[in-house]
């Protein structure tokens, strides 16, 4: 794909590309933030002769579901109340403290009675998952390469000692 032009959206969220030759184009917005979380929007639009294409997109539609289950290495039982932090991979440092990881997190929470926690996260964005003890804040485990496709669900398992 060849980059034709870039525009900034105005205060109403609108980017006007004006007159274009009839064609299929790809639109990419990689810095759209909702609730301080950046989403990656990429979609195709068709421009037709003599027509005005007014495309409108809700940024958080570019999401998928990340369903994480945490189990014990020792007996494979689900573990509840495990702290879970979802961090953009480019902001994650395995040596960071839990507090530091929480500051750069996009999402966080704790596992439920079945060891499960579910997040709606931006699609096509690389994340690290960091597990910690909610009483001591000690790190349990992390994984450095999680992502979901738009509208898809990823079921994921992590074990801790």
């Amino acid at each position: 794909n060849i980059l034709l032009e870039t525009r900034l959206t105005d205060p109403n969220g609108l980017a006007d590309f004006g007159d274009l030759n009839p064609n299929n184009y790809m639109l990419v917005a990689d810095s759209a933030k909702v609730n301080n979380v950046a989403y990656l929007v990429q979609e195709y639009v068709q421009v037709r002769t003599g027509a005005v294409k007014a495309k409108e997109t809700k940024v958080t539609d570019y999401s998928g579901t990340f369903a994480l289950t945490v189990r014990s290495y020792n007996n494979n039982q689900p573990l509840k109340n495990i702290g879970v932090i979802i961090i953009p991979s480019n902001k994650f440092n395995y040596a960071s403290t839990t507090a530091a990881n929480l500051k750069v997190a996009d999402f966080s929470g704790v596992t439920n009675d079945t060891g499960l926690i579910t997040f709606k996260i931006p699609s096509n964005k690389q994340y690290s998952v960091y597990l910690y003890n909610t009483v001591t804040n000690a790190s349990y485990n992390y994984n450095n390469s999680v992502s979901v496709q738009k509208d898809a669900t990823v079921n994921y398992l992590m074990n801790i000692y």
Partner: peptide, 26 residues
Amino acid sequence: TSGKLTYRLTDDAGKGLANVKVSLFD
């Protein structure tokens, strides 16, 4: 022979998101 294209990005409430860079590719 041309057409026009506008593109609007919103949050969940339909409010426009300002100052977002949008790139157009052929």
